[in-house]
Design a binder for these strands. Structure first.
Length: 333
DNA sequence: AACCATCACAACCGCTGTATT
DNA sequence: GAATACAGCGGTTGTGATGGT
């Protein structure tokens, strides 16, 4: 347990800690470290309910907690606070994190301010465990332009697709009793809902959930919400270097971004049914026809296993075609 | 069943900025 | 202005859970 670790190095920690002063620790006596017990949580919650937050060292002492003020503050902010939101990071939140990180970098607390209920620690953990893992397995640096472009032009569009799919499924089930919406109706619903991720307001950073209200496009990826053709792709492609580099596979790009009509009400359709997904995408199939034995890669290369993960829907965003595409791009850089 | 590898996340550390004396 | 205390941030680590062999 962490208590062992804490006790074993507590002396050195005390000596080296610049923010927990000697007087603080003298005031509090021997300190506990490691996981919080229910009793400790109870004490902290009760004290804050009565006296409020702030002056954490004093609070720790008065609450009868043998913890540093920092530890109490962290426990409260990251776990006990009533408005802390638990559970999986949603697709919208993922999208928000990606966008805000591309804008601000590792400013976790700043990013967290725009994700109500989420803590900087949680976002940081998400970034490290999910995003950096993907970068690592692509064998590129998470801060590299390649990976940032990958996020912007593949990951985020894929998230948007899935958000739309979920929204469309919801619309289909809530607005109509028809057993199956017509393709046109489904696409229309998706088109309406694409504004759900339309913009992060430049001033507040708030994600604007404006259905049908075009408030601008800060992602540069809203084009994925329409049927993506060479004609309408030109403007998007011309505005960035990555898209230009994509040109050799522009046909793939074209169809790649053509959202298949999703008749499956399951919002996880895209991840749960990799086969269905691939089959529904025109050009990825075409890739196989170009002599790429991706299925063999898939079976032979355990490094790609993460792409096939089905446990966490949030991770399973890319299919083998994506990876092949990414690897080609990285090789060309 | 036992072992090992990996993952997710809570908690800690060190540092910096700010407020107070 | 210097010293001290405090709050907050970003990076790192330890541990339990989980899955694979």
């Amino acid at each position: 347990m962490m208590d062992v670790k804490g006790n074993s190095n507590s002396n050195s920690n005390r000596n080296s800690s610049s923010s927990t002063t000697q007087s603080d620790e003298e005031m509090m006596g021997d300190l506990r470290r490691g996981p919080w017990t229910v009793e400790e949580d109870f004490k902290l919650i009760n004290y804050i309910a009565t006296h409020g937050e702030g002056r954490w060292n004093f609070l720790a002492f008065r609450a009868g907690l043998k913890r540093t003020g920092k530890s109490c503050r962290l426990r409260w902010l990251n776990y006990l606070r009533p408005d802390v939101r638990r559970g999986n990071i949603t697709l919208e939140e993922q999208l928000m994190i990606l966008e805000l990180h591309s804008r601000w970098g590792n400013r976790w607390s700043k990013i967290a301010q725009h994700l109500p209920g989420r803590t900087d620690n949680e976002i940081k953990n998400y970034w490290r465990t999910r995003v950096q893992k993907h970068a690592k397995q692509l064998k590129c640096d998470v801060n590299s332009k390649q990976f940032k472009d990958t996020m912007r032009y593949l990951w985020m569009p894929r998230l948007i697709e899935r958000i739309q799919a979920a929204a469309a499924a919801t619309n289909t089930t809530t607005t109509s009793t028809a057993k199956s919406a017509s393709p046109a109706a489904t696409v229309s619903a998706a088109a309406t809902n694409h504004h759900i991720i339309n913009n992060i307001d430049g001033g507040s950073g708030n994600l604007i959930m404006a259905h049908g209200v075009n408030v601008g496009n800060d992602f540069g990826v809203s084009h994925v919400t329409q049927s993506y053709t060479p004609e309408n792709s030109s403007t998007a492609a011309s505005s960035d270097s990555f898209a230009t580099q994509v040109s050799p596979v522009s046909d793939m790009t074209t169809d790649y971004y053509h959202i298949p009509v999703n008749h499956n009400p399951n919002p996880d359709y895209f991840q749960a049914g990799q086969v269905g997904y691939s089959e529904s995408m025109i050009s990825p199939t075409g890739y196989f026809n170009q002599g790429l034995d991706f299925q063999a890669m898939e079976h032979n290369n355990n490094n790609n296993q993460w792409l096939m993960d089905s446990g966490d829907t949030s991770d399973n965003l890319w299919n083998p075609e994506d990876i092949w595409f990414l690897q080609q791009q990285l090789n060309n850089m």
